[in-house]
Nucleic acid binder design. Sequence first.
DNA 1: CGTACTAGTCTTTTT
DNA 2: GACTAGTACG
Length: 788
Amino acid sequence: MGTYDMLNNKQREAVFKTNGPVLILAGAGSGKTRVLTYRISYLIEQEGVNPWNILAITFTNKAAGEMRERVDDLVGHGAEQIWVSTFHSTCVRILRRFIDRIGYDTNFTIYDTDDSKNIIKEVCKKLSLDTKQYKERSLMAAISSAKDELISPQEFLRNAAGDFVQEKIAEVYQAYQNELKRNNALDFDDLIGKTVELFRKVPEVLEHYQERFRYIMVDEYQDTNTAQFELIHLLAQKYRNLCVVGDDDQSIYKFRGANISNILDFEKVFPEACVIKLEQNYRSTQNILDAANQVIRNNRERKEKALWTDKGQGSKIHFRQFDTAREEAEYIADEIARKKRRQEVRLKDCAVLYRTNAQARLLEEYFIMQGIPYDVVGGVNFYARKEIKDMLAYLKTIDNGQDDLQVRRIINVPKRGIGAATINKVQAYADEQEISLYDAMRFADQIPGLGKSAQKLEGFVTLIQSFRSKLEFYSLEKLMKELIEMTGYVKAMEESDEEDVPDRIANIDELISKIVAFEAENEEATLRSFLAEVALVADIDNVDGQEDKVLLMTLHSAKGLEFSHVYLAGLEDGVFPSYMSIVDEDPTAIEEERRLAYVGITRAKDELTVTCARSRMNRGETQYNPVSRFVREIPANLLDTRVPGEKRFSFRESDSFEDSESDYSGFSGFSGFSGFGTDGGRGKKGFGVRPGTERPKAVKKDKTTAQDKKPFLVRGLDSLNGVGGLQKGTSGKGRLEYGAGDRVRHVKFGDGTVLAVAEEPRDYKVTVAFDGYGQKIMYAGFAKLKKI
DNA sequence: CGTACTAGTCTTTTT
DNA sequence: GACTAGTACG
């Protein structure tokens, strides 16, 4: 069959090796998705494998969707029978069917991080733990990593071996687990853990799935944790047709329990494994690959490999350093706008990647100023937003009244005059009767001491009950719309004087459209299936890449994606690599960051621009950071530090890359900065000063050559007046004091005439012809235009 | 019971 | 700087 001619030798080997365990070490851009899809099609078409017997596990829903699409194109029929999904959705499907075998109800709800945190809080209160000493955050982290390692509360307690703090954590863990069970809920980690438990405790269920999944494929294998590994291991045990694809250099989820030894030691667990390396890269230019290779070779914990391409050298990697993060953002926005004007790029070919979500803010400001359409991936997950969680809490309560947490969330939202005192009385009654909070409310008239509140509770119960009865003959869309109507949720929001009401209403509208889309895509769209799907949606899943917009996202979100033009922002020691990783005594912390750098660099197909700032505002304080060690690891001959003919040139002589070495030695000379120099801070602990904090004078130099600029501290203040307050700016869509034809003043662009004002859901879009700067489209909330 | 203000924490990344 | 939890007050 000619189809397979499109593959290179190694890829073909990986496709044709269908029996027994296979480890495919697939470098970035080496066509691993292609290999997986062809492998599936080969199994079906050439080896006559029943599509029903194939399981493909991916990392995100987006990846799963793409894989299914590509398999659909390759395989004539039966493709819909293949089970392609994420670890979490796979487990949900299994548990919905069989979890009753281990004592849970099959209509369990799924808790997100926010829900879990609330439970932890409750538990701490019950155990009267001091949350100053035992931070909810670290308790959650401890419990989560225990679950990642399949450690039960009992085992945790045993391991504590008398350590008081550990024993306390074990106690919290146990209580947390009890509470989840009482609410008939599972958290993210439980989805995996309970499936493993089910397989271990109920052999016939395991057997059933072993028989079904005779061919198993796992994508992004380097990111699996111990529990996920065990799950796969159990499933594959019988037929041993397990094919895992991954790249140890792209393992970036250690904080989430990913165990890199799963990939490094695959051959120990499966001695008969066949190992195939894919090293030809089809994505990037040689310069980009060389840079990536040179950076990653500084890691010790890895399998040796070297990517190559026949794509040609390409341009050098552009490196720019700025005085402030603000100038960095401005540069990136200007640069993309410039390329767009010259028609050198489509916006959707550009992405800006950064280490932390907070960095998106400044970039957004300047993209808006330039009128460049963009999307920010991530930040607060859509389904984690307050108003969305409220709506979902209603839906969950209608679906399943067992979940006290959801009931508590909405009982007084919008305000019904039901306060803490009332809830406590109901809770006491519920505890006494051993029923759920909601069920207790149904018998409000029997609860002593409620007084007038009993009526209010009745109203709430009637509301929920009426929706329950409508459930079977209402569409989800109708249910949702009527819910908003009957609860008066949006109405109450509109009447409140909160600031971001238009945004939040837009989010609720968005939720309705998601429900509509869900019903369109699924024939049997039930409330329960909707809630289950929604719990496992990642931000990246909603990126379709069709719209012509620049994408802004964290390096983590960018894994698996590629763009012609990539901007890596904030390449500073203390930002990237993160401060945390630098001070960590474990040297592999930096290695994880380096892998992240590797992921970032290898996202670029043609042009890569790396930027950093000398000073940056971080949680209210200005930091002064040196250039990232990762930039220094890129050989100088691959970098260009200035572009001929570039209009704005903001580099001081001393900042050209060759000279910057002296900057580093200067840095490591300061007592406060030891550990940030070339020695990488090996094992040094306890220097209390964060990178650059409180030491502006030491870093700032007098040689300012760019005469169009004020010293950056002053400039920072100026800019605050101009475009500060991003959040508030977008949210409060008040009345405008100007309209078309009016003269206005802008902090940066000076005076101009308003040409048009267009109303948008969040804000007003204003077109202004500036006297000096030409025509600009901007959002009123940000632009802060003054009528003159 | 609801509100308005204050103090403390936080960020590194997310299914 | 921004968000949140906790508190004091009406």
